[in-house]
Simulated scan of single mutants.
Amino acid sequence: MKEYKTLTREKVDVDLTVVKYFTSETHLMQDWSDKMIDLVLNGVTLNGFKKDEVREMLRETYEALKRYEMIGPMASPFLNDPPAIVARAFRELYPCTEYIAQLVPDLRDESGAAVYGETLFPSDGSTPVVSISAEAPISAAPELLAHELAHVVAGEDAGHGPEWKAAEEAIFKRYNEILEAMIPSDTAEAVITPHKAGDGGIVAMITRANVPEPHGDDWKLTTCPDCGAECWETDLTRQALAAEPALRAACTLCALKGGAHRE
């Protein structure tokens, strides 16, 4: 159950096609003068204002508010807050799936080991709780949140199986689409396709914030050359880099942003 109230409704959206039925020309609210907006909000009467103009103002406000409320109970002060964009991507993909997210200092699992992310499913079936370590690097926050939200989608017993992996990749894909729309770049849209020799591109390294301990003797700690996040470089990564000089390595998130090709 949500811990906050929203003014917009899940099943009600602004229908762009109804504008053709308006009987008079309307303007975007951003083109209104301060005096006109003040009169609509605080004037003693709306006499003289066209009904369609006021309706368009309400529609524009509702649409913007619904996008805002997708994030959650609080909005970020940052224009490009990556975790907020992850939260928006998740809400657009899974509008009926609820969760509670929190930052936790010194986050530890049931055995007492330090972890960077954890999702708890209450035994009473209530809303899952996503916890992200407050000690994790800020650059790792979007990847950590996407990782845990994929657990929310897949369910408690799914582990890191195919359903979890599909959810994580869907969240990352939508995240990059939103980010690209917010901050257009000259590069091609980021896509994930099977890698072929000669393609070049970026080898995605496992982020330490996501997997704190190495899973093999060949895992060596390094840093992402783009964002500085700690990553695990494996023998497979080193072999790929040695075999194909056009390749470079980066953390998973930076690889996705850069339009990485990965197997």
Rank of each mutant, 00 (worst) to 15 (best):
M1E: 13
K2L: 14
K2G: 04
K2T: 09
E3K: 13
K5T: 15
T6N: 03
E10N: 02
K11I: 07
V12R: 09
V14Q: 07
V14L: 08
V18F: 09
K20M: 03
Y21D: 15
S24H: 11
S24K: 02
T26H: 01
L28H: 13
M29Q: 08
Q30A: 14
D31P: 06
W32G: 01
S33E: 08
K35C: 03
M36P: 00
I37F: 02
V40C: 13
L46C: 05
N47M: 01
F49Y: 14
K50T: 02
D52T: 14
D52G: 09
E53V: 15
V54T: 05
R55L: 08
E56S: 11
E60T: 15
A64C: 06
K66M: 11
Y68T: 02
M70F: 08
I71E: 14
M74R: 12
P77N: 01
F78L: 10
N80P: 02
A84C: 06
A84F: 04
R88G: 00
R91I: 00
R91D: 01
Y94P: 07
P95K: 08
C96N: 14
C96Y: 15
E98P: 07
Y99W: 15
Y99T: 04
I100T: 15
Q102A: 14
Q102R: 14
D106Q: 13
E110Q: 06
G112R: 12
V115N: 03
E118M: 12
L120A: 04
L120M: 14
P122N: 12
P122R: 02
S123H: 02
P128I: 09
V129P: 08
V130H: 02
S131V: 06
A140L: 05
A141E: 13
P142R: 08
E143I: 05
E143F: 04
E143S: 07
A146W: 00
H147P: 03
E148W: 13
L149K: 05
V152C: 07
V153C: 00
V153N: 00
G155A: 13
G159H: 08
P162E: 12
W164H: 11
K165N: 03
E169W: 12
E169R: 11
E169I: 06
R174E: 07
N176E: 11
L179E: 02
I183R: 15
A188F: 11
E189D: 10
I192E: 13
K196Y: 01
A197M: 13
G200K: 06
I202G: 02
V203D: 02
A204R: 06
M205E: 06
M205W: 00
I206V: 09
T207S: 03
V211Q: 10
P214T: 09
P214R: 03
H215R: 12
G216S: 15
D217Q: 12
W219P: 01
W219N: 05
K220Y: 00
D226Q: 10
E233A: 03
L236M: 06
T237M: 06
T237D: 10
A240G: 10
L241C: 04
A243H: 14
P245W: 00
L247I: 11
A250I: 01
C251R: 04
T252G: 01
L253K: 13
A255Y: 09
A255V: 04
L256F: 10
L256E: 10
L256T: 07
K257G: 04
G258N: 14
G259L: 04
E263L: 14
